[in-house]
């Protein structure tokens, strides 16, 4: 997973970007539900969903190559499971249906995440009364993803620059070292964030 591909285009300006986040959320989930519920015997339905997604994608002004790149990145996960479907009676038909459905849903979600800043999604969640503890957790998580990913990168480079024998045991230990160090640093950072929240009157 590459962080630079994350909601990369969510700050573009287009008719789709300007829609309220709640509308886009409902529309995207609606499209996904339709795709999943459509019987396999109705290819016209899938074509309709595909057309809707395509129109929205063009309107969003996101470069088509970007969709391709994201889709390629996610495809192995879907293929890994879908391949199992081949080994059963009528397997190819199942495989094809599942792949069509999955890719349509993936495209919908890629479109949603790249036209809707996550902060807006959080605000919608807040409005529909998702428990505050969960919203706070999501908000802090989103904010510190990038900080922690940077930290992992720095620790990894620091280790690599002093690792001279690429043995498997060493690799495991250094991976574990990075993860435990990351956890300790995260707890320390959480303490400092708590202090910063209190300093601005958090109650």
């Amino acid at each position: 997973m590459r962080l630079d591909l994350l909601d990369h285009h969510s700050r573009l300006d287009s008719p789709i970007h300007r829609l309220p986040a709640a509308v886009k959320l409902v529309a995207a989930v609606g499209l996904v539900v339709a795709t999943v519920l459509l019987p396999a015997s109705r290819p016209a339905g899938f074509a309709l969903v595909a057309a809707a997604v395509a129109v929205a994608a063009v309107l969003s002004r996101i470069p088509p190559a970007f969709f391709g790149k994201r889709l390629l990145l996610l495809e192995p996960l879907a293929l890994g499971v879908a391949v199992l479907a081949i080994f059963q009676p009528g397997g190819w038909r199942v495989f094809a249906t599942v792949m069509v459905r999955t890719n349509l849903c993936l495209l919908t979600m890629i479109l949603l995440s790249n036209t809707t800043p996550f902060a807006d999604v959080l605000r919608v969640l807040q409005r529909v009364r998702v428990p505050p503890l969960l919203v706070t957790t999501l908000a802090l998580m989103y904010r510190y993803l990038f900080v922690l990913a940077d930290e992992v990168g720095r620790m990894g480079r620091a280790r690599a620059s002093r690792t001279f024998s690429p043995q498997r045991g060493v690799a495991w230990r250094s991976l574990a070292g990075i993860v435990s160090q990351l956890f300790i640093r995260s707890t320390e950072r959480a303490e400092r964030i708590y202090a910063a929240m209190c300093a601005r009157g958090w109650q």
Binding site: L133, T136, T137, L138, A139, L140, M141, R143, Y144, L145, V147, L148, A149, E151, V152, L182, F183, S186, T187, R189, A190, E191, I193, Y194, M197
Partner: peptide, 13 residues
């Protein structure tokens, strides 16, 4: 409370 969010970011990373 902040640790919950940081722990989630930690698991993600």
């Amino acid at each position: 409370v902040p640790l919950m969010g940081l722990a989630a970011a930690f698991v993600f990373a």
